Simulated scan of single mutants.
Amino acid sequence: MSQIDYFTEDRSVEAVNARMGDEVSPRLREVMASLVKHLHGFVKEVELTQEEWEVTIEFLTRTGQICDDKRQEFILLSDTLGVSMLVDAIQHRRPPGTTENTVFGPFHVDGAPVLDMGANISLDGKGETCLYEGRVQDPDGNPIEGARIDVWSDNSEGFYDVQQPGEQPEWNNRGVFITGADGRYWFTGIKPVSYPIPDDGPVGQMLGHLGRHPWRPAHMHFMLNHPNHERIVTHTFVSGDDYLTSDTVFGVKESLVVDYVLNESGETKWKAHFDFVMVPNQ
Rank of each mutant, 00 (worst) to 15 (best):
H40V: 12
Q91I: 13
D161T: 08
D241C: 00
D79G: 04
L131P: 00
D140Y: 06
Q168C: 07
I4K: 02
F59G: 03
A89C: 11
C67H: 07
V257N: 04
P192R: 02
P95V: 06
D154C: 12
S2C: 02
P165D: 07
H209T: 15
D200V: 14
L207E: 06
G127F: 03
N281K: 15
G118S: 14
L115T: 15
E167Y: 14
Q205Y: 08
D241P: 01
N172P: 11
M206S: 06
A112H: 15
E9V: 08
L131D: 02
S12K: 01
I90C: 14
E128F: 01
D5Q: 11
V24L: 15
E30G: 11
E264I: 08
P95Q: 03
E23S: 14
A33R: 00
T268P: 03
I149A: 05
N101K: 12
D247C: 01
M278P: 07
E51L: 03
S2M: 02
S34F: 00
I190N: 04
T99Y: 15
V233E: 14
A15T: 08
Y243A: 00
L60W: 07
G204V: 14
V83A: 09
P227G: 04
D10S: 15
G204H: 07
R27W: 06
E128M: 08
G166I: 08
S153N: 15
E14P: 00
D140I: 06
M220Q: 14
A89W: 11
Y260S: 08
D10R: 12
G211E: 09
L244I: 01
D150S: 13
H229P: 04
I149E: 02
N142K: 15
W53E: 10
S122F: 05
H40Q: 15
Y6D: 08
D200M: 11
L77S: 05
N281Y: 04
I121C: 03
S265D: 11
A18D: 11
V249D: 01
P198D: 09
R184I: 13
D241V: 00
K44V: 09
H40A: 13
N120A: 13
F250K: 04
T98C: 05
P106H: 05
R135I: 12
P192L: 02
H235F: 13
K191D: 04
W53I: 04
